[in-house]
Design a protein around this nucleic acid. Structure first.
Lengths: 157, 157
DNA sequence: GGGGTAATAGGAACCGTTCGCAACAACGTT
DNA sequence: AACGTTGTTGCGAACGGTTCCTATTACCCC
């Protein structure tokens, strides 16, 4: 059971995505192009607002709601995914970057973990409940090494 | 490393909790008592709004913000915890009921999983990143057996 | 039972996100 | 290259969930 319904492998560039957008009956608008450029630029886990600011540096009139709408559409096309890393806004990144998330409840740091890390839980959940976990959409919370050290040392807990 | 910091074991009844509230300089108000009665009544994973409705059946003037404030206070005292089971509002339950959560992205069903289920992931995360997971606060999302069967059959995916 | 103060009702404010609408602009057609 | 179609945009209002503010209430200690 692999993930291959509809869109084959994810496109490697802005123009390819825009071509796909047009195939789907959409239009290659400037705001969409600029947003895609930002998404293809390095640095994952950007919130809609961060992306909006980046886009607005180039095209100041692009509205936040446009960012949301475009992200939604790109997600529908399988180009983009979002992840919830804890409280606060969702973060968006290219669907090509596939990984799970570990997010520190103390400092907010996020670890991108290979999906293999979750195999143990995946098997256990499958065996016990027939439940198939997906560690990509919601992060698994906890405490990172640094914060654990700090907390253990300080509180004497 | 067990969980035993601060407050010893959780109290077993409304009055014990109220006693603890008073010890901490708080007051045993009626809204607080009624809320606690609702929390000790069976049925976990209630949202603040659901609890508000239940409380208001007895005391119609209790305001939602009061519910939130009391839940916050009770959480500070270690009596109550909340969990995020996906999108939507947080759910609250007594801190005595300790378990992780598996939540279905398709149907929203929530499985209360014994913490042992997460041992595999816990070890892997510890070994790879020094990260200590906490599966209680945020659910691990995925797809439950029923939805998987339905989706596999229907979509032919 | 009176005084000090924690807690309350009520509502406004907040954040992240979605929606409705009139104006716009991308694209295929001519 | 102008045209019409219609997907898209900007804008603001609305939304759900939660927190904050303020005057008033009611607990509790004495």
């Amino acid at each position: 059971m692999s993930v291959e319904s509809g869109q084959s492998s994810a496109p490697a560039g802005v123009d390819e995505v825009l071509a796909r957008v047009r195939e789907a009956g959409g239009r290659a608008t400037t705001s969409r192009r600029i947003l895609l450029e930002r998404l293809f630029a390095e640095g994952s886990h950007k919130t809609a607002e961060e992306l909006a600011h980046e886009v607005q540096r180039v095209a100041p009139d692009v509205h936040l709601s446009t960012i949301y709408r475009n992200l939604e559409e790109l997600e529908r096309l399988g180009v983009v995914t979002h992840a919830h890393l804890g409280h606060g806004p969702a973060t968006y990144h290219l669907a090509t970057e596939t990984h799970g998330h570990l997010s520190c409840e103390s400092c907010g740091a996020t670890i991108e973990a290979p999906l293999g890390l979750f195999d143990g839980l995946a098997e256990a959940a499958r065996a016990s409940f027939g439940f198939e976990i997906d560690p990509r959409h919601f992060a698994v919370l906890g405490h990172c090494a640094a914060c654990r050290a700090r907390e253990a040392g300080a509180a004497g807990d």
